[in-house]
């Protein structure tokens, strides 16, 4: 998607979701298997445990321009 197109359309927030491998990541997997619809602009990052996510990684995400962050355990 080009930048021009992006700005003309409604704002499509880029969300990063840090997902626990055993809970939310599996839930996301299931959501896919169930053909559930959810915003495509979410980027899922698989982590071994949501406790693994630390402030440094979250800050780096914002620094690189992510609009919102979801930590799902």
């Amino acid at each position: 998607m080009s930048n021009g197109l992006r700005s003309e359309r409604a704002f499509d927030p880029k969300i990063v979701a840090f997902c626990c491998r055993h809970c939310a990541y599996a839930a996301a997997d299931l959501a896919g298997a169930m053909r559930l619809r959810y915003p495509h602009s979410v980027r899922i990052v698989d982590v071994p445990c949501s406790g693994r996510v630390d402030p440094l990684e979250m800050l780096r995400a914002f620094e690189r321009g992510v609009d919102g962050l979801l930590v799902a355990g």
Binding site: C23, A27, L70, G73
Partner: peptide, 26 residues
């Protein structure tokens, strides 16, 4: 811009909802 949610591996609907809510909020 940051939110923490909790769910089990069977909660696909809740996952989709959490992503939807977060997208809306942002």
């Amino acid at each position: 811009r940051i939110e923490m949610v909790n769910m089990s591996s069977a909660m696909a609907v809740q996952f989709a909802q959490a992503v939807e809510n977060m997208t809306q909020r942002v």
